[in-house]
Amino acid sequence: MLKSKGLLIDITRCVGCHECERACAEANRLPQEPATDLSARRWTYLKSYNDETVFVRRLCMHCNEPTCVSACLVGAFTKTETGAVLYDESKCIGCRYCMQACPFEVPRYEWGSLAPKIQKCRLCYERIAGGGQTACAEACPAGATVFGNRDDLIREARARIDANPGGYVDYIYGLSEAGGTSVLFLSAIPFEKLGFPMNIPKEPIPDLSWRVLSQVPKYAVAAGVLLFGINWITARRTDVARFEAEERRRAITEHRER
């Protein structure tokens, strides 16, 4: 079995050449056009900060336990053996709960289409399954995006921070966010200043709803027993009342006859 793959994106090394965006569009047959954020036609977007001196890639984080996978009612999302989270349009009914649920707000919608699909980075699934690497990592001239086994990438990230403690904030973004993601980030500037959401739970997010969902069968059975029980008691009371009414009626008739 393939080891779970991933990307390590070192923001300190990025020179802002936008080659990742170009390569991504080429590999996925998306239009080469200017953009302002991720969209159905743009799966990775390089956003600049601090007067265009710092560049941050946005793309699907490919969570280890993806929220979208658990949120989708028809199971249109899967976490594959390569680490990529993939979407299957043939199942999708278009409820957009995945868009609502994703903590990184990654899934994008084809709003203009009459048969709209979710669009997002596929971590170049076919290329990786065939033994290759992602188009963006291959295209990066500065080594800012590197591809590898997630385990190795974590070790590499740790080593970079340890070798240059002054050059990095001591934090690997994606190591524990939402229970861990396949895409990891290193930065010299605190992540919250670069638009990274920092309030993301450090545990798998699907647990939040599973805690409640897993109780549903128990609740249904218990409520059923309780309601049948109450009905049994009140029905008995109704029977008694009816019986007493009958008795009274009989007493009245007897009284009249006398």
Partner: peptide, 11 residues
């Protein structure tokens, strides 16, 4: 197509 882990499935 079932995904019992989805709240939307319950809905």
């Amino acid at each position: 197509m079932w995904n019992p882990h989805s709240v939307m499935f319950e809905v």
